[in-house]
Amino acid sequence: MVLGRGVKKLDLVDMLLLAALVGLAIVWVAPIVWVIGLAFKPNDVLMRTTGGIFAPPFTGKNFRDILATSAVFGWMLNSFIVAIGQTFLTLAISTLAGYGFARTDFPGKRIAFILVIAGLAVPEQAIIVPLHTMFAEAHLHNTYFGLIAPRLAFPFGVFLMYQYFKGVPREIEEAAMLDNASRLKIFFRVVLPLTVPAQATLGIYTFLHAWNEYFWPLVSATKPEMYTLTIGLAATQTNFAQTEGIGFLMAQAVFAGLPILILYLFFQRHIVTAVAGGAGK
């Protein structure tokens, strides 16, 4: 709680800083609490006023309506399929490529690596128009593969794994070579088990990114049954100020946000190190 980790008593500066911290925390929490409150209010009440969310009347109707009518389950399933598929494929190809670049040598490696590193600078937006055309030609829009594939090309995961492999002592692999292990055996039996922390980092990072992806699903998944959660919710919220269903809309937001928030609370420690470690490299 002190800027310089000194050993001191709580002074006026500390009190002001603490007050600022609490104030900011309220700004961060209040909108979410308020939205959760709205989700339990009857829609007709919300048409008149959104004040007094902690006073009755309350209702669970908005959530019952979701269970009965909303497409949110299907979108959630789509999001899971896309996020998990993307995570597994990213882990597989990034780990292999990261190892290849960090620990093996082959003709053309330097040039390939320079190319991949340069690829780090390419933003999604720079290629999305031609990519959309390519996928349209190949009839890949509105498929899971179409939603999963584009992200696989981005070099971040390869770079992260490359950095990690660089940090693993070479001696261990050399010992395995002297133990007559083949290159593949070294990779799968000796090196791969050492990469679990890096896999977790990259996996969490990729999953979160895929789960929250907006632009590509927006242009690729155009059929409502292929919407991901993000896109589905976006589609329902246009013009909501005029809608009578604020409570329903908020219930949907809560319902959609809850799984990922619960996952976050469960894996908090890992997620935090994953994101910090991932971007810090």
């Binding site: 490529a97 690829g119 390519m134 696989l152």
Partner: peptide, 28 residues
């Protein structure tokens, strides 16, 4: 930093990613 011999077979490690990289990033 490489371990073991320089051989073209090692390129197989990067082949799956390079395929995605070339088709889905370089080409577009």
């Amino acid at each position: 930093d490489a371990v073991g011999r320089r051989t073209a077979w090692n390129a197989l490690f990067i082949a799956p990613y390079m395929l995605a990289f070339l088709v889905l990033l370089v080409v577009p």
